[in-house]
Computed example of a mutant assay.
Amino acid sequence: MLTTLTALMPVILVIASGYLIARTGLITGEQWRGVERLAYFVLFPAVLFRTISQADFASFPTLNMGASLLASIFAMAVLLMLARPAIERVWGIDPGRFTSIFQGTLRWNAMVALAIADNVAGDTGLAMLAVAMVFMIPVLNVLSILVLSHYASGTAPSGARILKDLGTNPFIISIGAGVLLNVSGLALPGVIDDTLAVFARAALPIGIICVGAGLDLRSLRRPGPALTMGTFLRPVFMPLLAFAFASLFGVTGPALAIVIIASAVPCASNSYLLARQMGGDAKLMAEIITLQTLVAMVSIPLALLLFT
């Protein structure tokens, strides 16, 4: 437990620093948008491209990891859909609020996951986490859009738009480019590799500072059934499902730790944007993101202790 906490404490403290920086006004709202775009479109893609281009995929169970993560996602999605009528009947949670619970339970913050994977397993952890992204990002985006289009009042994007968004996702592009370079057998020129290494050193702290800056503790209401479910279903049940399927597919060691990290990190901040765009309950979504991030400071170490 102490070793896990030691690895996670720097990430937690940097998130807290981001929150304090935002509250002091040192960086203002629009300036934060620029920093977030820098991290999303430049710094993290540089990390992923460099890591994947140099990864030894034969050294870890790529397909088994992917199967474990996808199985846990689909299992939880099915359970939520089956439980939806009872959730509405017993707690009065309408379909729009259900969509925020759905996103809060299934979607993940890849920036936080990358930072933790780097601290826990180094470059190998980053490579395995990038593999998890390939499997998870397209599926989670499509599932979230389908549920919002069915239960919320907004207009769903077309299939072509979804494919375009996935095809222009900077994480997916950088991972794909890294895979191509990796299988080609070519190596990055030294000066390019050194440049990307500088970007990589900046990416993780800047990315998780932005996570902290996005927290809005003032928005939290007194927890009700919707916020409670949206907050705790993910940290409690997603690591449990991931561990069960990882055991089924024979995933152990550092690969298991990465599967647990990908399943235990809090919900992605862009879930709020999707909820707002498609008519979901954006306020509830913002509250879930904030509270989940706070809970994750305890739940992630516990998940790693219990399941790895």
Rank of each mutant, 00 (worst) to 15 (best):
C210M: 01
F237A: 13
V179N: 00
R218V: 10
P225Q: 08
I175M: 05
G190H: 05
R234A: 13
F199W: 06
A200H: 04
T168D: 08
L240V: 11
F171P: 00
N169D: 14
A177S: 12
L256H: 05
L233I: 15
L186W: 11
V191A: 14
P170D: 11
G178D: 02
G250H: 08
N182V: 00
F171V: 12
L204M: 15
C210I: 02
P189V: 12
A200Q: 11
L256D: 04
L180Y: 10
F243W: 10
A257N: 10
P235M: 12
S247T: 11
I258K: 05
T252S: 09
R234Y: 08
P225Y: 08
A187Q: 15
I261Q: 02
T168R: 08
P223E: 03
L188V: 02
L241A: 09
G212F: 01
G176S: 14
L256P: 05
S247G: 09
D194S: 15
V179H: 00
G230W: 07
L217P: 03
L217V: 12
V198N: 07
L248E: 03
L181D: 05
L248H: 11
A246H: 03
V259T: 13
L227P: 02
P223Y: 01
F171R: 01
V179I: 14
T195R: 06
I208K: 00
L220S: 10
P235T: 12
A226W: 02
T231N: 07
A197E: 14
D193K: 05
P170C: 12
L180F: 13
L241T: 07
L186R: 11
G253M: 11
S219K: 09
T231M: 12
L188D: 03
P223L: 02
V211F: 11
N182L: 02
L181W: 14
R201C: 07
P239W: 05
G176Y: 09
M229F: 15
G230L: 10
C210A: 15
I261V: 15
F243P: 00
D193V: 01
R221W: 04
A226K: 03
V236D: 01
A202S: 10
I258G: 05
V211N: 09
M229G: 03
N182I: 00
G207Y: 01
F232Q: 08
A187I: 02
A177R: 01
G207P: 02
L186P: 03
V236S: 09
F237V: 08
P189Q: 12
V183I: 10
M238Q: 07
T228W: 15
I192T: 15
L233T: 14
I209T: 14
L248Y: 07
V251W: 01
G190N: 09
A197C: 03
L227Y: 04
G250M: 10
I260V: 15
V191P: 13
N169P: 13
V259C: 08
A202V: 10
L196N: 07
V259W: 06
R218P: 02
G224I: 01
A244D: 01
G253Y: 12
G176F: 15
I175T: 03
L180M: 14
F237Q: 04
A200F: 04
V191Y: 12
F237H: 04
T228D: 04
A246P: 02
V251E: 04
